[in-house]
């Protein structure tokens, strides 16, 4: 009874209204409220995912590893795997670098202004990729605004290829994923105690020193989280590479799309998807490990 009483006074809800709600929390525990969501996720996410895994082994009534054997032996899949990893990594890196500037700027704004600017940050996220690809062609193309400006400034016929190659894919993907990377960094910047920076300044640190010795190290978990999120989401995309990429920018998700919708070979599609998921899990768990090391 004593512990229960302690619990009640410790929880803010208990303090707010000593009525039915704290009793429910005491008797059922907070975990209970996660149950509907857990069941939902099990039914609509985990079960179908297991179905995908099964489809990669089971075709026409027999269990076989043929899809994975094909994956291991096929040059097409190796190239796609390398592309997926390198495009995902580059996208994550660039999104984080750009996102950090945006997040830092946002974190130094008054709250009301910040709310408005966050909406602006989210805008590219709500725009259709087909429309954006058209806009990128106008901007980055050989006859695009940037190349025309470069030609006018330099007085030469210089053309910097920025689209329908790897650069185009990464620009397009980073544009889409920067909103994802801003938010975790912003939240880790906002949760920092201003007193720490004040203390550093009082001790005679310059602005740069405050940033590199206090602000940046403290924001590292947010940086890591946002970089990972951008990379992993980037690794699963296929429309942006097919619209803005060159012939060598085929990704694993493009192959999944092809085997699902055109080849109707769901065994191969599932196998590629399983490899992609395992890859994402591997990266995420490595990062979780690094993160616990960092925060120690």
């Amino acid at each position: 009874m004593q512990t229960m009483h302690a619990l009640e006074t410790n929880t803010t809800i208990g303090k707010a209204h000593r009525g039915r709600i704290p009793i429910m929390i005491r008797t059922l525990g907070f975990g209970t409220f996660l149950l509907p969501l857990t069941v939902f996720m099990l039914l609509v996410f985990c079960v179908p995912l297991l179905g995908v895994a099964r489809a990669s082994f089971y075709t026409n009534g027999t269990w076989t590893l043929s899809a994975y054997r094909e994956f291991v032996s096929g040059a097409l899949f190796h190239r796609a795997l390398i592309n997926t990893l390198s495009i995902g990594f580059m996208t994550g890196l660039i999104s984080v670098i750009c996102g950090y500037f945006v997040a830092y700027h946002l974190s130094r704004m008054p709250q009301r202004k910040r709310r408005l600017y966050i909406i602006l940050v989210m805008l590219p996220f709500w725009t259709s990729i087909l429309v954006k690809s058209f806009a990128f062609t106008v901007l980055l193309g050989t006859n695009g605004i940037i190349n025309q400006a470069l030609q006018a400034i330099s007085g030469t016929n210089v053309v910097v290829p920025m689209i329908f190659n790897r650069a185009g894919v990464i620009i397009g993907m980073a544009h889409w994923l920067i909103p994802f990377s801003v938010l975790p960094i912003l939240s880790s910047l906002l949760s920092q105690d201003k007193a720490l920076r004040d203390a550093a300044e009082v001790m005679g640190a310059t602005g740069m020193q405050v940033f590199w010795k206090v602000t940046f190290p403290l924001s590292l978990p947010g940086v890591l989280a946002s970089g990972l999120m951008a990379s992993v989401i980037g690794m699963g995309s296929f429309v942006t590479p097919s619209l803005l990429g060159g012939r060598q920018d085929l990704m694993m998700a493009n192959l999944v799309d092809f085997y699902v919708r055109e080849a109707l070979d769901w065994r191969m599609a599932s196998a590629i998807a399983v490899v992609l998921i395992l890859l994402a899990l591997l990266i995420l768990s490595t990062a979780a490990f690094v993160r616990t090391r960092l925060s120690r």
Partner: peptide, 10 residues
């Protein structure tokens, strides 16, 4: 894109 790239001059 078969049309849009042509009209954009790409």
């Amino acid at each position: 894109q078969t049309i849009s790239l042509l009209t954009a001059g790409e």
